[in-house]
Design a protein around this nucleic acid. Sequence first.
RNA 1: GGCCCGUUGGUCAAGCGGCUAAGACACCGCCCUUUCACGGCGGUAACGCGAGUUCGAUUCUCGCACGGGUCACCA
Length: 557
Amino acid sequence: MPVDYKYLSELLFPNVTMTEKELEEKYPPRDLPEGAKVTRFAPSPTGFVHFGGLFPSVVGERLAHQSGGVFYLRIEDTDSRREVEGAASALVRTLSHYGISFDEGVTEDGESGNYGPYKQSARAFIYHVYAKRLVAEGRAYPVFSTDEELEEIKTADKKAELKSVNWETDASARREAMFARRNFTIEDVERELSAGHKFALFAIAEGDGTRKRKVNDLVRGDLELPENDEDVVLLKSDGIPTYHFAHVVDDHLMRTTHVIRGEEWLPSLPKHLQLFSYMGWKPPKYIHISQIMRLDADGSKKKLSKRDMGANLDDYSRLGYCPCAVIEYVMTLLNSNYEEWRVQNPDKDYTEFPFNVKKMSSSGCLFDMKKLDDVAKNVVSRMTAEEVYENFLEWAKTYDPDFAALLGDRDYALSVICIGRGGKKPRKDYGTWLELRSYMEPFYDETFKVEDEYPENIDRGDIKGALTAFLESYDHNDDAGAWFEKVKAICAPLGYCADMKEYRASPEAYKGSVADISMMIRVAVTGRMNSPDLYTVMHIIGEERSLARVRSMINKL
RNA sequence: GGCCCGUUGGUCAAGCGGCUAAGACACCGCCCUUUCACGGCGGUAACGCGAGUUCGAUUCUCGCACGGGUCACCA
């Protein structure tokens, strides 16, 4: 006897009171200008935002805001087992730190917008309306499980199970099981229900897996994917939907026009398309982003995972990468012509760049910390001294409070930051605040230390002689030219060459050059072999402290 | 294993039937230079393999190889 689906749907969902019509009215199509895109970032709150998570969020944000559309945040918390406490609000905070802001959706302490709730766990009543309809249409059926079976599902380590699976026999076994599940009578259902058993809801797959269907991805173009021939779980036995069902219902109701997600979803796209077709809804456009990879020790590419350096966004904060530098790097990876645009528009905000989906790469890329560093240096070199100061101070307050205290003398700090800043060829000494911290150490007595030893082959007596001579002739009022003339004057008596050209012509005739003499002074004053222009440095540090360091060095030798 | 996606120098990548195959990072050399940084110039280095289509393939087609993804009441 054929199953009465209408009756079955009442049996399964007796408490559904809302109608689809009501939902359509509650969440009407958005009133937006032609071409405006509605995108979303829809993470599951299983931890903290990961570098890879920046990609879909930046793409979504750009696409929406560039087109005058809407960008919203939806939390996909349909798996309570994996949910991490506080992850959602941490997520909002992190993204906002990176300058990614949402027009609606989950916020740090609640949510805003007319298309909510934006947490899937709070949307069960919505999903059930559509689930009920699919049952009534004979397109979905329940599968009952006893508590013991559910317990088993919960504890089974699916990953480990899959590894030891025999794919050949398993595939046919699963098909058989699938057909077996589809066979049931109303009496079975009534019996299970009265026994208090929970059910999961499956959608019947009507596709033919041997037939291909052309589907479009905005980045990859036309793809040939097999039709879906696997029954998908719509609702888990706790009544909460799986990703597949939630995606279809939510993105329809929230009127998403473009779904941006990782390429790991590509294989399940036929499932989603089938569900959209069952529901009679127009599917959104899809953009599947490739994964960010890292180089494994054995030389192979691996997905950038949480534990990898550079994966956790907290690493960037700790190291003091300006969020805008990280975004800048993401942009270079996202759109191949971004760097070119940046060269032509050094002072524009990245949001002025015409982001183009067609310029996105369809092959996964390797995370390159060196490139990030280069980008960061460029970003910092383009900032004003004030911007650098403010950002650096902010960073230091949480990561190096002692140093932050030193930065209290704003003008002094600015004078250091100003070295080589601006102009056509700005210095690029540091790309991170941690690097800047190190760069600034010589400028404060509290952090000054002699880090670089004089090379072994330099005569200690010469150093002492040079430093002493330097002190004797030093006049703080000298200009840079006069100052250097005096340094040159130290050379000859010690057997060093004051003229570099001459020295290079016959190095064997001298013990060294003015470069060596300068180095001797440099190490004494800054504690390092390398520094920006020494005259400038000494005038920032001041006469008294500079000379004190030189004297102290003489005494140590 | 089935299915899907991908494959241009060490890395990110332009290219969309005819090019000495861009550019950026990294690396090396030279120049500038008192060191460093900046800047300038130059260099090493690539179309995975094999068929086919074509007058001509990095570009189109098909195999293969390799890499990645996926096959849960996870997302």
